[in-house]
């Protein structure tokens, strides 16, 4: 302790300064050392490399639905008929009201993640949409929730048309 501190113990002196600086540096060091460990639990580069899926739409007939895999999740692709489009464009009064126009890039192609927004089961195809076997949520041909416990419409993945008949689901990361 310096003389100053002995005479005036109320005033924080060199010792206080050194203790604080040591504490801050040590704390920053521990946080820095923890980061690689935390980061190692994030998806590795080989997983990130598989973050997109390219799908050929040519073999999906009008009125047919196909399930493809993207990031380990099912994605429903529905080639909608003009009647189906007309029907979903009429009704917007659902639990999570969204006009169909905002849910598709091209009216005849619906692309949605095939996981129920309730607890993540895979709904099965029913004539007018999808029906979740776990807790009975019902979705229409725009993937919008009609009834059941699910709070939201089926999630739309990011995708782009590469050509007329090919889409790329997902966005490259990293």
């Amino acid at each position: 302790m310096s003389d100053d501190e002995v005479k005036n113990p109320e005033k924080p002196g060199r010792r206080y300064f050194l203790e604080t600086v040591t504490g801050v540096v040590a704390g920053a060091g521990v946080c820095g050392a923890a980061w690689p460990f935390i980061s190692s639990m994030n998806p590795s580069t080989d997983v990130l490399a598989k973050s997109t899926a390219e799908v050929d739409l040519g073999d999906i007939a009008v009125g047919e639905a196909k399930t493809v895999e993207w990031q380990g999740k099912p994605v429903f692709i529905l080639h909608r008929t003009p009647e189906q489009i007309a029907e979903v464009r009429k009704s917007v009064d659902t639990k999570d009201p969204t006009p169909d126009e905002q849910r598709v890039q091209k009216p005849e192609w619906l692309v949605v993640v095939g996981l129920c927004t309730h607890l993540g089961c895979v709904p099965s195809r029913k004539d007018k949409g999808w029906f979740c076997p776990c807790h009975g949520s019902v979705y229409d041909n725009s993937g919008r929730i009609l009834s059941g416990p699910a709070p939201k419409n089926l999630i739309l993945p990011e995708y782009e048309f590469l050509t007329e008949n090919r889409i790329l689901i997902g966005k490259k990361e990293g």
Partner: peptide, 27 residues
Amino acid sequence: MHYKADASLAFDSVEHIMREVNYGWLI
């Protein structure tokens, strides 16, 4: 968390740690 204790996978899983896991080389 990343290693595989299987004679046919072990060596490759170590390489996976070295090349693909974030900071796997460091750990």
